[in-house]
Design a protein around this nucleic acid. Sequence first.
DNA 1: TAGGCCATCTGGTCCT
DNA 2: AGGACCAGATGGCCTA
Length: 375
Amino acid sequence: MLTLPYEEPDMTYEPRFGANYPRGSLPDLEPNPIHSLNVTSDPEREGEEEPDPIHSLDITSNPEREGEEEPDPIHSLDITSDPEEGDISEREDEEEEREDDIQQDENGHPRKRGPRRKKLTKGRQERVTVRRHEANARERSRMHGLNDALESLRKVVPCYSKTQKLSKIETLRLAKNYIWALSETLSAGKKPDLLGFVQTLCKGLSQPTTNLVAGCLQLKARSFLTDHNGEVTYPGSTAHYDNMYPYPGADLGTAPGQACSTLVSGKPSYHSRHYSYGGQYEPYYDHTSPEGGREGHLGGQISPPLNFNGIFSLKHDEPEEYGKSGHYGMRYNSVPGHGSLSSASMYRVSPEGRLHYELHLRSAGQTHKAETQSQ
DNA sequence: TAGGCCATCTGGTCCT
DNA sequence: AGGACCAGATGGCCTA
């Protein structure tokens, strides 16, 4: 629901292997044989489940089989080699259990020929099962780690709510936009344009996520919606701009009405939304968005314009306060006496506490306290 | 009920 | 050889 087709050029691709069988081409499955581990295909064994035509184990690691035809497009169990085959008694055991090739498949077509199948011994079957279970556990653990990292990411992107979590894909998109927006701010070397910042933040996000971010940022989503082409549209009134965010004029060192009046009076457009914050800065949105607003410049490459030979430092205080409220604001804080804009600070504000993010730009000859703060 | 999102299982490939 | 990584497949849950 949250996810809309994003601007990834093409999400479809050629699979590396033959795993993507058209579902229609598969035989009808039992109600739920899906993930069972089938290590035998002996149809005579009573009381056992039907082999899963999809996920049954197919171990064909015998290098001698290279170049042979695939034994079966569906992963039927076919264990044809075992590194431990040197054991004579086991070999005899296998010889007994070796089954003749089934001459016909279920459709009456002759089966492909290949190495004669042999059934698993109990011990080997157990080993296969154990290895599979271990691999499953590792995979679960790996995915949990991935999800943990994603959760960490959720907490540092501008909109975080425990009650309404961003989906994975939206989290990544928002994070990318966030990085982009911050990078633009840094590369511009001037105080950020709030509206533009939020617009960049919401580029390509789904409507629900845009609304969520808007809610978090106390903005009206419609004021920075983008159209189908990724262009920002302003559907009419701008009257609500001045209550989009509680503009911290004091924090910015400008009169409260100063920047806001620019917001209201100026018809903002994505390419001309340069608020004057005192009028001392040149327009800096000469390029646009993470989503290819600069045709021919990035050539489809989506990467933030981070330069300056600088680094980010993200100071995230009191994370436990985070998420206590679903209502956050964003404000920017100038540092008195830092007219050079070597440092820009940004807050996420909740009623309970203020989270202070400081962006420190280290450029030639500049040293900032970020370096002295523990990471 | 359809669609989105997610967790999980699974097997192929790559890497150490 | 074994683990990591990846992507396909599937079912469950939730929401509009």
